[in-house]
């Protein structure tokens, strides 16, 4: 199994200005064979959804450290659906307390990755989800 041929957008919505984690994930996914697009800091969910459509990605990974993960995941899912792209898979990573996980899954997140997880674990989860 690999991520060869899979296109993944790594995006940073919200106001926090730390993208080291996002860049590390981007590189790990590239090393697992994916084609990775990165959008830069502080992008709106609407902007992220448009880029996801134009780039025809298989998945969007949102990196969120600001604490507003619920709103941002919901809003991104809504924007994707509005663009007829509700089938693009959504992942979220960052500082996300476990009591929020259920709600995030309901909002459309297919994977939730926290700082405690190994990179290998994250990559394996993405791989399993996209090859399912």
């Amino acid at each position: 199994m690999s991520l060869n041929g899979k296109r993944i957008l790594i995006a940073k919505p919200g106001l926090d200005g730390h993208d080291v984690g996002a860049k590390i994930i981007a590189l790990a996914l590239r090393d697992a064979g994916a084609d990775v697009i990165y959008t830069g800091l502080r992008r709106s969910p609407d902007y992220i959804a448009r880029v996801a459509v134009d780039e025809d990605v298989d998945a969007v990974g949102l990196s969120i450290l600001s604490g507003s993960h619920k709103e941002l995941v919901e809003e991104t899912a809504r924007c994707l659906a509005e663009l007829d792209a509700g089938d693009i898979h959504l992942f979220v990573g960052g500082t996300i307390p476990s009591e929020d996980h259920d709600e995030l899954r309901q909002a459309g997140a297919r994977g939730i990755f926290t700082a405690e997880m190994d990179l290998d674990e994250v990559v394996a989860a993405v791989e399993a989800d996209l090859n399912a």
Binding site: S2, D31, G33, D35, V36, Y38
Partner: peptide, 19 residues
């Protein structure tokens, strides 16, 4: 990348202003 066959498609980030 000739090793992983993956890529970082980084051109777009320089074009953010027009995206």
């Amino acid at each position: 990348s000739p090793v992983s066959k993956g890529s970082i498609l980084g051109d777009r980030i320089r074009m953010d202003a027009i995206a």
